[in-house]
Design a protein around this nucleic acid. Structure first.
Length: 787
RNA sequence: GCAGGGAUGGCAGAGUCUGGUCAAAUGCGCAAGGCUUAGGACCUUGUGCCUUAGGGCUGCGUGAGUUCAAAUCUCACUCCCUGCACCA
């Protein structure tokens, strides 16, 4: 469609507390791109939503109910507390405070399409999505192991960043392969690397543990008593038969089931109970045996053991013991028949990769990474028992979890827009409607009769979808690299036809503060609101856009933020002065000099390169050129003291228009002084005929000559007083001669020379006592300095 | 364990893909001069070492290599940071 909007989204914020300067980065970068497209006169669609799925809102709700004074630390404004009667109200209050911040930050968002993931309209689409996944066979059920508190009878989240419990840090559920050995006793050892069995091995037992014979799934094994307990927690069919003593005996004959060699048994010096407490240790003494340690070799061993019914697995925590807040020791428990989205499905992986083939990523290297991530992903649990969210349509008592309900929200904004504006009622959203709007499936009249929505409304929705989809670019933080973005790709590949597949992904790295991860405990936490109040909207935008490349960590510093603010104020003051000057009728000079030609050439060169940068989402180079470099060009121009009002005005006007995406308030305000209305602000077009690279080179050489003059003068001054130094310059071309003549004033001033005489090499009346002229090169005049 | 990013001058941070134009952008800081009653702001210049003419030397985490030429390419190493599934 020719009226396709430029469609961009950022990974919407989770309603879990106050927003900080890290969010500013994640949302300002897309807003800069949005404003760029806006100022080019394009339609844009830039909606915003709020991620409320999960237990955050409930936690905040409970915390506030227990202690209302804590509300502000969760980003809930004082006047919002009264409105909170249930967890969903937390979402509403936070969402409205976020919107307040977005407005304060001047974002060009489509607020009309705002939605949260717990709104009924959102759920309708998610249910539709899950029915699609189910039809495709991408929803599967299998057992699942997770950390569990036996006392509270609920899952424990071992998230270091969310918890102050030290043993949670880095802890996770790991999987051991269990191997049944041959010989006198059916010892069952554990390992994470089966390939070790290809070489010679040792079994380590723990003298502090009691061992027992048990029957698991009808098979006799010897493991530790503790391991029997752990397997019971995992809901395994296991029964103890008798105690067994295996410590301190050398007569026991145990064979490696792969090599059939006898293995040695020894006692571990460590007291940590782990696995079955019979640890398989590969005697990897030589380089040769190390070669066997790889995944392929492990797979082969697995297959062999599987054939002889000698392999099993168990899950447990990577570090033990871990205690829940309630004091109970955390166990690993098996959930039977958990629902998964099967990201391990091979066909699905293929179509996801096909999608990646046609996507652009910024930075570009992420694209290559994506293929590996897609290969690596396996089935992902998609439902949980508690929290807010959409009810799972295929089994009661489950809620669709947070990362499974946030993959096609770009399509949902179209529906949200219609619901919010009252065009359709949430109850009339049906699978038939969504099939029609998103996929073009079905008959409009039928959809109209089953939903009760007028045909022209349905057609408008379909048109709206077609004029926005596909998504042009999805912005998100790097934490989404291996989770959200791949899921987003998988789900689009599964559900939408190829023409609606997204076109680009933009990743930005994190913001830290004063060299450390932002945290309220460390006192380096900077809230968005405070940043805006202290430094102002545009200074924050400028700092965020120019402070670091997108793919590196941004180290927020209040000092630099303050300096940026000062810089911006200076820029505003300077520009105001120049606007006054450029509109002052007393100023002279309508004739275009060489300096005007140069400045206009520089202006258009800059427009050209910044436009190219912006089209490639290279925001930092854009702002460096558009702000720092261009300001420098202007100040060079001014230093020649041959100011032409018209040139100055043209430059300022286009320069400010280029700055609009980055510092919109400043740009708008200053352009108003120039008589340009906000609605008229247009990204400047390139006047190619104005670009004169040769002229730019001569001016570059001028700067180099100043450096040369300074260095000569500096050395001379060291050994003698400089009274009346005259400098003779020998240039190579007529063009250079004209420019150097014109620029004499600046040269004498900045290089501290009393007088400058310019000759062209070969001039008849040339004064050249030391035959320097022979050293002149194009763009590099020779110099003779007296005194 | 798997994967990714990084290390540049007093500081922040470009430059690395496409080797030379890089003693290294830009900003801050610092120094000198101008302006100013003063301070601030602003303007100019300087800010690795040496050098009586635009030159030389050293230098971009460490070590080695490729090349006429390396911050930039190759290999090894050290250190820092980040993500990894039921947390969003």
């Amino acid at each position: 469609m020719n009226d396709k909007s430029f469609y961009l989204v950022f990974a919407y914020p989770t309603t879990s507390g106050a927003l900080h300067v890290g969010h500013v980065r994640s949302y300002t970068l897309p807003d800069i791109i949005a404003k760029y497209h806006l100022s080019k006169g394009e339609n844009i669609f830039f909606p915003v939503g709020f991620h409320a799925t999960g237990s955050d809102a409930m936690k905040i709700f409970n915390a506030i109910k227990a202690d209302p004074d804590k509300a502000e630390s969760y980003g809930i404004p004082r006047d919002g507390i009264d409105k909170i009667n249930e967890p969903a109200d937390v979402v509403k209050v936070l969402a409205s405070s976020y919107i307040g911040l977005f407005r304060k930050a001047g974002f060009s968002l489509n607020y009309d399409a705002a939605i949260s993931t717990i709104d009924p309209a959102y759920s309708k689409v998610i249910e539709w999505q899950f029915r699609k996944l189910h039809e495709l066979g991408y929803l599967i059920q299998k057992d699942y192991q997770l950390p569990w508190c036996p006392n509270e009878n609920q899952p424990v989240h071992l998230d270091a960043s969310e918890s102050d419990i030290a043993s949670f840090k880095g802890n996770k559920v790991i999987k051991y392969d269990l191997v049944l050995f041959e010989g006198d006793l059916p010892l069952m050892g554990y390992t994470m690397d089966l390939s070790g069995l290809l070489g010679s091995i040792t079994l380590e037992i723990n003298p502090k543990e009691k061992y027992a014979e048990a029957v698991i799934d009808g098979k006799k094994v010897v493991i530790s008593e503790k391991a029997i307990g752990k397997l019971l927690n995992l809901d395994r069919d296991i029964k103890k038969i008798r105690d067994v003593a295996i410590g301190g005996t050398d007569s026991l004959k145990i064979l490696n089931p792969i090599t059939h060699e006898r293995v040695t048994i020894r006692e571990t010096p460590f007291e940590i109970a782990d696995g079955t407490d019979i640890k398989i240790i590969a005697d990897a003494k030589t380089e040769e045996s190390k070669k066997h340690h790889n995944a392929t070799a492990g797979d082969e061993v697995y297959k062999k053991l599987e054939a002889s019914n000698r392999i099993d697995t168990m899950q447990e925590l990577s570090a033990k013991p871990v205690y829940c807040r309630c004091g109970a020791e955390v166990i690993v428990k098996t959930i039977k028949n958990q629902w998964f989205i099967d990201y391990g499905n091979r066909d699905w992986k293929e179509s996801a990769k096909k999608l990646v083939d046609n996507i652009s990523t910024f930075p570009s290297g992420y694209k290559d990474e994506l293929y590996g991530i897609i290969d690596w992903l396996g089935p992902r649990p998609c439902v949980r028992r508690t929290g807010l969210g959409t009810k799972f349509p295929f089994e009661d008592g489950w809620i669709i979890e947070a990362l499974s309900d946030s993959n096609i929200y770009m399509a949902i904004y179209i529906i949200a827009e219609a619901v919010n504006s009252g065009k359709i009622h949430v109850n009339s959203i049906s699978d038939e409607l969504l099939d029609y709007v998103f996929l073009g499936k079905g008959e409009m009249n039928e959809v109209s009769s089953t939903t009760g929505i007028a045909t022209d409304t349905i057609k408008a929705l379909r048109d709206r979808f077609e004029s926005t989809y596909p998504l042009d670019v999805n912005f998100g933080g790097m934490e989404h690299k291996s989770v959200h973005f791949p899921f987003f790709i998988f789900n689009h590949a599964a559900i939408f036809p190829e023409k609606y597949w997204p076109r680009a992904i933009f990743l930005n790295w994190h913001v830290i503060s004063n060299g450390a991860k932002m945290s309220k405990h460390l006192g380096n936490y900077v809230s968005w609101n405070d940043a805006l109040n202290t430094y102002g909207t545009d200074a924050v935008r400028l700092y965020i856009a120019s402070g670091a490349e997108q793919w590196s960590i941004f180290n927020w510093s209040n000092q630099v933020a303050g300096e940026t603010k000062t810089r911006l104020v200076e820029f505003i003051n300077q520009t105001r002065r120049l606007i006054k000057l450029s509109t002052n009728s007393n100023s002279t000079g309508d004739n275009e000099t060489i300096f005007d030609q140069w400045l206009l050439s520089k202006l258009n060169s800059s427009i050209q390169s910044v436009t190219a940068y912006m089209d490639r989402y290279e925001i930092r180079p854009s702002i460096v050129e558009a702000f720092s470099d261009m300001t420098g060009h202007l100040s060079s121009y001014l230093s020649y003291n041959k100011i032409n009002n018209k040139t100055l005005k043209t430059f300022i006007e286009k320069h400010l228009a280029m700055l609009y995406p980055f510092i919109p308030n400043t740009s708008t305000e200053l352009l108003r002084d120039l008589g340009v209305d906000k609605a008229q602000i247009k990204w400047p077009s390139i006047e190619k005929e104005r670009i004169n690279k040769k002229l730019e080179n001569v001016f570059n050489s001028l700067d180099n000559t100043i450096k040369d003059l300074n260095s000569i003068r500096k050395i001379k001054n060291k050994y003698q007083e400089n009274e009346n130094n005259t400098c003779y310059l020998y240039v190579s071309t007529d063009e250079e001669k004209i420019i150097y003549e014109e620029a004499k004033e600046r040269l004498t001033k900045t290089a501290g020379i009393n007088e400058i005489v310019v000759f062209k090499v070969g001039d008849k009346d040339i004064y050249d006592p030391e035959n320097r002229a022979s050293r002149a090169k194009p763009f590099r005049p020779a110099i003779f300095m007296t005194g």
